[in-house]
Design a protein around this nucleic acid. Structure first.
Lengths: 196, 196
DNA sequence: CTCATCATGTAAGGAGTTACATGATTGG
DNA sequence: CCAATCATGTAACTCCTTACATGATGAG
């Protein structure tokens, strides 16, 4: 149920089309929430039918059509309600830790490959998070700049600080995963070549 | 697609019924993979139809029925293939970090409540993970003891070490979430009562 | 005889994935 | 005129959640 709030969060900056939103999801917001186009278009229509957003239909050339979505007051309220309400935590479901728990059943080389891939995956994520932190500090993230433009001066510091806070949390999680997997590799080596 | 491998991981220790499995999922394995009964029973039937497990039907009293599931050689192979193959990482989707990224839109008190709940949630998880680590060290986890009984001596150390490794990783993730949310609380306080 | 536990499921729906499908516009 | 990008979707399917539904056994 968070998809619609992610959409509202982006649309609050200014009206956008499904296509625009889709691109945002593969960039900035995609770091905290990912959604493919096939999920975005139907959700926007559903939100429109519930009055959270309104579509402004624009002609593109002769036959083309573009739907610009605006947040309605009801949508703004729904977003604030979500922000101010409790968050439900899903149950734990993590393939990497599931596999780690039974790693004695894997070939040592497969265990190493798994941990190497885990490190590579989280190093890639970490690089993205750190890059994003750089963009926040340099005010060079276009989305953040647009957001600050529509934000009253008194809230700008908060906006920036919470972005930083979020990405620092993500970066630390990534560093934790990397450190864990590195210790795992050392463990595999120790158990595969028992010290004489 | 990991549910079946979680089921196979437990069944490899010894045959069990859907009911037994369901209880394991709410205890030990549930820490790395959760599944409700309504998902377990159908999945077991599907796995049986694919030859990964075999149901041994047992009478319970006069009319009662109990299906004890065994892992077949094909199931054992499927489990090993999964253990030795690549893991696919899902895209990032985290309601807590999504909310954190837009926390300037929440009331300061709601932000505090959110972070307090985040801390409480992860403190609960941490307590469970640390409890599990204690059970691993004391060899007082019944599931682990059963697993060690069917494990050749040469693999027992590995079995224990990888369990430790898994739960240490989970505990550290929980500690990271707690530390992050604590910093968030300090940030909310600083931004809500700006230092004069 | 009653209650906790054992035991097995179905149904409806939401959320997410992957693949498919189409066409318009703009810049080179 | 051709390719990149803009633009909008549908369909089929898997996975997961929540709620519903039923009944047997064993211990006290």
């Amino acid at each position: 149920m968070s998809l619609r709030y992610a959409l509202l969060a982006i649309l609050r900056v200014g009206p956008q089309s499904g296509y625009d939103l889709q691109k945002q999801f593969s960039l900035s917001v995609g770091h905290v929430w990912h959604a493919p186009d096939s999920q975005i278009y139907p959700e926007l229509r559903k939100m429109a039918s519930e009055g959270l957003v309104e579509a402004e239909e624009q002609a593109r050339g002769e036959r083309g059509l573009r739907r610009l979505y605006h947040v309605t007051p009801a949508g703004e309220q729904a977003f604030r309600d979500w922000m101010n309400g409790p968050l439900d935590y899903q149950r734990f479901r993590d393939p990497a830790h599931l596999r780690a728990a039974y790693l004695e059943s894997a070939e040592p080389d497969a265990a190493r490959t798994f941990l190497r891939a885990h490190i590579a995956h989280w190093e890639g994520e970490l690089a993205q998070f750190e890059g994003e932190l750089g963009h926040i500090d340099a005010l060079s993230n276009p989305m953040l700049v647009r957001r600050l433009e529509v934000t009253p001066e008194s809230e700008r510091e908060r906006t920036i600080e919470y972005k930083r806070f979020t990405y620092e949390g993500l970066a630390e999680r990534a560093r934790g995963e990397i450190a864990w997997a590195r210790r795992g590799r050392a463990l595999v080596d120790r158990l595969d070549h028992p010290a004489s």
